[in-house]
């Protein structure tokens, strides 16, 4: 675990160059992302060899509650970064901030060096950062194919006046349809193309949402709980698709609760709790990280306690109570005595 890692060392620089051209290296991006991150320190806010997204000092509070307070975070390009944390840790809020769906109180963040702070959601999406939602947003009363076609960028026929002249957009529409069918085939939804998206099962909607996002040829894909509510068989196929995104050179950030999934596909894991990033590192480092274990399970998680341990904990607690009693006088003291007598 070399802590003195700096970006731009030979190995990391090589990974950078290669990850920009995934087609040339075939199945290598996975290894490249791993290799690039191998020498990065397991520290919060550590610089990455080739960051796609850089977050600096972002805070967002709702009234008195600080939902997100991230000092510094970098997301490696071409890798799969898992974002985990207990409920209410601020993962989805961070997603909303990064994609323009919410505005922060302070802070800046950038994608490929371009600041994203003031952009509206659609502008962020046009730069190539596309997201999916925790509660799947399939457009129910559109067919599956129409859902897909919506994802394509730069459509001429989406302008009001050109829409009236079909000749101006027909060719583009045909090309988009071909691309959509190819993607639907990959996600095994091609036979459903003329069904309303509202008739799909929950898992199929997740697949559709991911496929739709890919129609826009994104550079960064942000998936908010892609596996939530999906049956185990489909989870495997979704996992395969997420890995494929990396193989195609995309940067993937995803929120997930299932640790097996996280361990399986992440190159790097970022752990959030109470709005802060509390740990970063490769997946295998996370389960050993004391801060993470505490955040998820509380300090005394090794249930059930043995009798000796229980006695020891009890004795410690009593000692603490006794000290407090001593220090703070009778009101609290009588309370705690009653507690003890019960």
């Amino acid at each position: 675990m070399p802590a003195d890692q700096t970006p731009g060392q030979p190995a990391a620089g090589g990974a950078h160059a290669a990850s920009l051209d995934p087609a040339a290296t075939g199945g290598a991006p996975r290894l490249l992302a791993r290799a690039a991150l191998r020498d990065v320190a397991w520290e919060v806010g550590v610089p990455k060899p080739d960051p796609a997204i850089v977050v600096d000092g972002v805070t967002r509070s709702f009234g008195g509650l600080t939902a997100v307070s991230v000092d510094h975070l970098e997301v490696q390009r071409g890798g799969i970064t898992g974002l985990i944390g207990p409920n209410g840790a601020g993962k989805t809020t961070l997603f909303n901030l990064l994609t323009g769906f919410d505005q922060p109180n302070t802070g800046t963040w950038s994608f490929d060096g371009r600041p994203l702070g003031k952009l509206a959601p659609h502008q962020v999406a046009r730069l190539g950062v596309v997201r999916t939602f925790q509660l799947t947003k399939a457009l129910s009363r559109l067919t599956v194919l129409q859902n897909m076609l919506l994802g394509a960028q730069g459509q001429k026929g989406e302008s009001f006046w050109r829409a009236l002249v079909p000749g101006t957009w027909r060719a583009q529409e045909r090309a988009n349809t071909e691309k959509a069918m190819e993607l639907l085939g990959r996600f095994k939804l091609d036979r459903k193309k003329d069904d309303f998206a509202g008739t799909l099962s929950g898992g199929q909607r997740k697949l559709l949402e991911m496929a739709r996002a890919l129609m826009s040829d994104p550079k960064v894909v942000m998936l908010d709980e892609p596996m939530a509510g999906v049956n185990p068989a489909l989870t495997q196929s979704l996992l395969g698709h997420v890995k494929d995104l990396r193989e195609e050179g995309m940067t993937v950030v995803f929120v997930e609760h299932d640790m097996d999934v996280v361990r399986d596909i992440s190159d790097w894991v970022v752990v959030m709790a109470a709005g802060k990033v509390i740990a970063e590192g490769p997946p295998q480092s996370i389960s050993q990280n004391q801060a993470v274990v505490d955040a998820y399970l509380g300090a005394h998680h090794d249930a059930p306690l043995t009798i000796e341990e229980e006695d020891r904990v009890l004795a410690e607690a009593e000692a603490a109570i006794a000290r407090e009693q001593h220090a703070e006088g009778d009101v609290i003291g009588s309370e705690t005595r009653r507690e003890e007598n019960r």
């Binding site: 769906f101 959601p121 999406a125 999916t132 399939a138 994802g151």
Partner: peptide, 9 residues
């Protein structure tokens, strides 16, 4: 929101 996320104003 789904439409916004796909880059439409």
């Amino acid at each position: 929101d789904a439409v916004r996320a796909l880059g439409k104003n």
